Computed example of a mutant assay.
Amino acid sequence: MSELYHNRILELAAGIPNVDQLAGAEGEALKVSRVCGSTVHVALTLDAAGEVVTAIAVDPRACALGQASTSILSANAVGATVSEIRAALEALRAMLKEGGPPPEARFWELRHLEPVADYPPRHASTLLAFEAAVAAIDQALAARAAV
């Protein structure tokens, strides 16, 4: 278990940026882990084209692993494209569940969560932030399409 909760994971978990609410959020999502009860709420806005995240707020109520993942998302989401965030979720999921390589580029620090792959009960909380971000993006885009 000590390999899961190494210093960088604890630093990330303790220093989550953008913990707040976001006035005027276009998309919001709350994801819950049924395994452990962890939750992560993500609110965000997109640019005029709906392609780039312009603001994000997070509210993680999760274990250190879920908080570390939320920290990485929140620190790097503003300026990220929708496709980058979707790709990061898929790469994180593949890393945890299929032995895939860690995400790269903007979300490269997710590599610190690679040992979680050996602990399937921890996968859900580790994925929450990125799942919530993608759900919030989908909600924002759906709202724009409905107008």
Rank of each mutant, 00 (worst) to 15 (best):
F130T: 12
S74Q: 07
R86G: 12
A129D: 09
A142C: 01
A94Q: 13
S125G: 02
R86I: 03
I85D: 14
L113I: 07
E114I: 06
Y119W: 15
P120S: 04
E109C: 00
R144G: 00
L128Q: 02
D118I: 00
A87F: 04
P102E: 06
F130M: 02
L92G: 08
R106A: 03
T81H: 13
A80K: 03
A91T: 11
L141E: 03
A136S: 04
A135L: 09
L127P: 06
L110F: 14
Q139R: 13
R111H: 10
S74R: 10
D118N: 14
A117H: 02
A145Y: 00
S74H: 08
G79V: 08
A132Y: 03
L92M: 15
N76Y: 07
R111P: 00
P120V: 09
H112E: 14
E84D: 14
F130W: 13
L89I: 09
A133W: 00
V134E: 07
D118H: 13
A129C: 03
A77P: 02
A75S: 15
L141P: 04
E104P: 01
P102C: 03
A146L: 14
N76P: 12
A140N: 00
P103A: 05
A140M: 02
V134D: 07
E98C: 01
A117Q: 10
P115V: 07
L128W: 05
I72N: 05
A105Q: 14
S125T: 14
A135Q: 13
L127T: 03
L92C: 11
A145L: 12
M95Y: 10
A77N: 12
L113W: 05
V134K: 01
P101M: 09
G100C: 10
L113S: 08
Y119R: 11
A105T: 06
V82P: 08
S125P: 01
F107L: 01
P102H: 12
F130C: 02
A77F: 11
P102T: 12
T126Q: 08
E109P: 00
R106P: 01
A135K: 07
L141F: 02
N76S: 14
R106F: 03
R111N: 06
A142G: 11
H112C: 01
R86W: 01
L73P: 01
D138P: 00
L92S: 11
S125H: 02
F107T: 04
P121V: 02
A132D: 04
L141R: 15
Y119L: 11
N76T: 10
A75H: 11
R144C: 04
P120K: 07
A77C: 02
A124V: 01
D118L: 15
F130L: 10
P103W: 06
R86V: 09
F130D: 11
F107Y: 12
P101W: 00
M95C: 08
E104H: 08
P103L: 04
L73F: 13
F107C: 04
E90V: 12
Y119D: 13
A143G: 07
H123D: 07
A145K: 13
G79R: 05
A124L: 12
V134W: 01
L141N: 09
A135I: 07
L89Q: 15
